[in-house]
């Protein structure tokens, strides 16, 4: 990891209240070696308000550029949304542990909701590069707020989308179960929805398919120092989302 100023190559809406920011480190070093599921800490203000950086999952790493997709939810992301293209922003990256695609897995399912689909796009790209068959199940509250579906279908991900306002995603979840029982997945990754996490946990319990979840929480440092971002895990201990995660085996996390 390193702290670096990055040039903002692109910062524009890709869905409702959701923007994509494409960056290039000013030291020219790129983020080679960064893995899907890792994140950046973005400094969103030059003043002390908002005080803290914002953790943002990597959406893509390509050559010397890298990108994030973020939803405008508060003061920090509002400031980020106003950052001009051509300007610069300070980031610390890459942080945390990425997804662990099992080498032998041939069929990979990615299950995401809302902006939680963003880190799954980078994972899909990696899985496809490894010759895996990737199935995407992406939901959102509206068609306009679906994230990553265009990029996923361009990559050749076999995609199912669902739209529901209450987070139930019933049809999509049923579809995942059906697909899995017809021809099982070898690995499932999820982000962005408790219901989806529970489904992946159920699949794991019922059929043993390994699953991983990327957790998103508030953080202060992002590098394991402040212990502010902990989550209680199934073994009865607190784990830091930033450095023990943000990707965890689904069986370790309370659904």
């Amino acid at each position: 990891m390193r702290g670096v100023f990055a040039t903002i190559l692109q910062n524009r809406a890709v869905a409702e209240d959701i923007l994509k920011m494409v960056l290039r480190g000013k030291d020219g070093a790129g983020l080679a070696g960064a893995r899907p599921g890792q994140f950046l800490m973005v400094r969103c203000s030059d003043t002390s308000d908002p005080l803290l950086r914002r953790p943002m999952s990597l959406y893509d790493v390509s050559g010397d550029t890298f990108s994030i997709v973020y939803r405008v939810v508060g003061a920090g992301t509002r400031l980020m949304a106003k950052m001009p293209e051509g300007g610069e922003v300070h980031v610390i990256a890459p942080l945390g542990n990425g997804f662990n695609l099992p080498p032998q897995s041939g069929r990979v399912a990615l299950v995401g909701r809302g902006v939680g689909a963003a880190p799954l796009v980078f994972l899909a790209k990696t899985a496809i590069a490894q010759g895996k068959r990737v199935f995407g199940f992406i939901s959102a509250t509206s068609r306009e707020s679906l994230v990553g579906v265009e990029d996923l279908s361009k990559m050749g991900v076999e995609l199912q989308t669902g739209v529901d306002t209450d987070g139930s995603s019933t049809e999509l979840l049923d579809l995942i179960r059906e697909r899995h029982s017809a021809e099982p997945f070898d690995y499932v990754a999820t982000c962005g929805s408790r219901r989806m996490l529970r489904l992946v946990q159920d699949l794991r319990t019922a059929t043993g398919v390994p699953g991983e979840v990327l957790l998103e929480t508030r953080m202060a440092c992002g590098i394991g120092v402040c212990k502010g971002c902990v989550v209680m895990t199934a073994d009865g201990t607190y784990k830091k989302v930033c450095t023990d995660g943000p990707v965890f085996p689904v069986e370790l996390i309370a659904g």
Partner: peptide, 11 residues
């Protein structure tokens, strides 16, 4: 958790 709350220029 939650163990953190950001406040104006504070934590």
């Amino acid at each position: 958790p939650p163990r953190l709350a950001e406040t104006p220029s504070g934590l």
